[in-house]
Amino acid sequence: MKSEIIWMIIGMGLVTYIPRMLPFLLFKGKELPPFVQGVLKNVPYATLGALIFPAIIFIQKDDLWYGVLGACTAFLASYLGANVIFVVLSSITVLTVYSYFM
């Protein structure tokens, strides 16, 4: 093991862990202003939108329909009330079948 790599890993670990942990320490037992609380309640849905798009379209850079098909399958399965695992498995299945025939 090269010690330079080990130090790099430890450094990467620290700068990753600190932002993950700090809010719990900083905002412990503190009542944030109502507007900030409101914004934080919105964060999960805004983040999900940003995590999905545009990345899902570019899963296959040569064939954008691939990502579109995956996205539509997941939306449809989820809209019909399927649970998350089923949504994941159905998207994988549809795309496997699609690439088999393409």
Partner: peptide
């Protein structure tokens, strides 16, 4: 083929987490 199709998994999961809330809230 499997590598590529499994690449959709996490995005599909995000969609699966998002859509149920979208159905009940315009916000």
């Amino acid at each position: 083929t499997l590598q590529e199709s499994m690449g959709v998994a996490l995005y599909a999961m995000f969609i699966g987490l998002l859509v149920p809330s979208m159905k009940v809230s315009m916000k």
